[in-house]
Amino acid sequence: MNILLRYTGGFMAEGGGTGKNVFLEWFGNEILGEKYTYVVGDNKELYGAFNSQFENKLLVIVEEAQSKENHENFDILKARTTCQKLNINKKNVPVYSVRDKTNTIFCSNNRNPLPMRQGNRRIQAFDCDVSMRGDTAYFTKLVSLLKKPSTKYYFFNYLKKYKTYDSPIMFQTNIPKTKVYRELRYLNAPKHFKWLASRIKDGLLEDGTMTTLMKDYDKWVQNEGGGKRD
């Protein structure tokens, strides 16, 4: 299972401060266990030649999913989120395979941190609730509660009763079409998809010849699509 938790706060707004990392690291270290959790600080770790740090991990938390690294390594990222086995490559040790049970949670303050394209079946996406952002009293109380053994006990028992997916197929067919999910699909769509969506939305799609449509598409690309066709 792979999840993106995003907070951008809108154009020109500073992101962060929603407490997602506080809770996720607590969950990984205190509920799953430090042995089975790994926090990625630099996205290059996801694509490096040596990867023994991911061996036998149940949860990988990417603190800041970076657009450049993830878009440039789309094929590797795609393989990582679907493979059932992971080839472990250590220095001066022959490569060997282990079962890959990793769930990855990507956190980001970037608008388009992951290449979620048409046909995505691997990643769920959610924008974080920002209603408590900057509320020092709230986060002080939250951290205090997370330190209590009783919090771990009740949360663990809650998870034991929580209904989850029976198979990867169930996960893929039940990905919620959230606002951020639809936005990321649009941002990563080919330009001709964006042109078509724009014209339909604005009621400007002409019922004309292919030549007429191509001229309109070229005009849209020059004005709104970055100046170049795909």
Rank of each mutant, 00 (worst) to 15 (best):
F155Y: 02
G17Q: 02
Q124V: 13
P190T: 12
G15F: 10
L145H: 10
Y47L: 04
R229E: 08
R122P: 02
K163C: 07
Q118P: 04
T8G: 00
L213D: 00
T104Q: 05
F11T: 14
E72A: 04
E64W: 09
N56Q: 13
T102M: 00
N21R: 10
R117K: 00
K228R: 11
K148I: 15
R99I: 10
P115D: 00
N223L: 15
T37D: 00
F50C: 12
Y38S: 00
M116I: 15
E69F: 11
F126S: 10
K219N: 12
K148V: 15
Y153K: 05
V95I: 14
G48E: 06
N92R: 14
A13G: 11
K163Q: 04
N29D: 08
R229H: 14
L205S: 06
M214A: 09
T209D: 07
Y47Q: 03
M210V: 14
Y36E: 02
R111Y: 15
V40T: 11
K44P: 03
E30W: 12
N112I: 15
L184V: 05
K85N: 09
Y154K: 06
P168N: 03
L4V: 11
S52D: 10
F139P: 06
R80Q: 12
P176Y: 06
D100E: 05
L146A: 07
S52N: 11
E25N: 01
V95C: 10
K91Q: 13
A137W: 07
S108W: 09
Y217N: 00
W26V: 13
V22I: 15
Q53L: 15
M170S: 04
G19D: 07
G10P: 11
S150L: 12
L196I: 10
E69L: 12
